[in-house]
Computed example of a mutant assay.
Amino acid sequence: MGRITARRRVTRISVGQRTSVREDVLAVEEPLEIRVGGQSLAITMRTPGHDIELAAGFLVSEGVISRGEQFSTARYCAGAEGTDDNLNTYNILDVTLAAGVPAPDPSLERAFYTTSSCGLCGKASIEAVRTKSAYEVGADTLRLDAALLATFPDALRAGQDVFDKTGGLHAAALFNGETGEMLVLREDVGRHNAVDKVVGWALTNGRLPLRGTVLMVSGRASFELTQKASMAGIPVLAAVSAPSSLAAELAVEAGMTLVGFLRGSSMVVYAGAERIANVTEADAAAAASAHQQQEVSVA
């Protein structure tokens, strides 16, 4: 398995002070080629570690699989014979789906690699961006206490071991929405990879759909993260930073609760306010009305 961190000599400069040279710790970024049945599907830039979960979560996000029994095995393999990459670098992972599970549609094959900052860069068309979830997230009956939700960012931050060393990784964690128990936390140089690793953990542990859970992310709530949560059956996505307009639209469409700027004791609910137990029905109705008026004004 590749390294998660690497050391490098750097020059630290502070204006008006003495310049120093010392070692610093960086988060490793390496490509991972995901194959299904020997056929290349995508290449993503990621932090090595939990690669099988990453591949499994990616396949859930793409709608290829939705249940643990559909994922058979995964193994690292070498590159093509007769080439310089004919070595097992642990950067090529081949997934075998269970018997009877259809192979990914050829249209899913990424035309170019996915960067660590974008999980949708290889999509061939706008239509391909929207993937229908196998789970009805809107039917989830979770009622979430706002005071409990406010504790999740600190719990997420406390679990970011590699971030403490490098300052260069995103994190995603899954919480039980009723008890506040952290079920799993994953870090990666790519925010979408961190979420895929969480979803992949759930798939390989037979936990899909993730009813009654909250996905907490360390950065912003983008469309791609909202979609990944929906594909895994997660009813609540919370972020310490802002959501995008498309993320909010998708959350409403999917029946999800979307929370942004979750810091300290405050938060902004962009969709699904009725799931927050401390929000009155009048507040939820007012928020829904304001959202509808906003849509009309934009149109």
Rank of each mutant, 00 (worst) to 15 (best):
A128S: 13
S133F: 04
L148I: 03
L97A: 12
A99W: 02
F152M: 15
L120V: 03
A111M: 07
L149G: 00
V129N: 03
R157Y: 08
A111F: 08
A146N: 01
T131A: 00
V137W: 05
A103W: 02
P106R: 04
I126D: 14
T89H: 11
L87C: 07
T115Q: 14
L148T: 08
P104D: 04
Y90A: 15
G119I: 01
V101G: 02
G119S: 06
F152A: 00
A103G: 04
S133H: 05
S116R: 13
S116N: 10
C118H: 06
A98M: 09
A139H: 09
F152Q: 02
A98F: 08
V95P: 01
E127H: 10
D145I: 03
G138D: 10
A150E: 07
F152N: 00
P106I: 03
P104L: 04
R110C: 05
G100L: 14
D105Y: 07
N91T: 14
L97P: 01
L120W: 00
L144H: 08
A155D: 10
G122R: 01
S107M: 02
T96H: 06
D94F: 01
R130Q: 13
A146D: 05
L108K: 10
T89Q: 11
F112I: 00
A134Y: 06
Y135M: 12
A150C: 13
G100V: 08
L144W: 09
Y113S: 14
G100Y: 13
E136V: 11
E109V: 13
F112P: 00
E136W: 07
N91P: 00
R130D: 13
A139K: 13
F112G: 03
A103T: 06
Y90V: 04
L87T: 07
R143P: 00
N91W: 05
G159I: 06
I126V: 07
D105T: 12
L144A: 12
A158G: 10
L148F: 12
Y90P: 01
Y113G: 03
A99T: 08
V129K: 03
A147F: 11
T141A: 15
L148H: 05
R157T: 08
D140Y: 08
D154S: 15
I126P: 01
L156I: 06
F112M: 11
T96C: 07
E109Q: 15
V137D: 10
A155W: 04
T114G: 02
T131S: 00
I92H: 04
K132W: 03
N88T: 09
T115C: 06
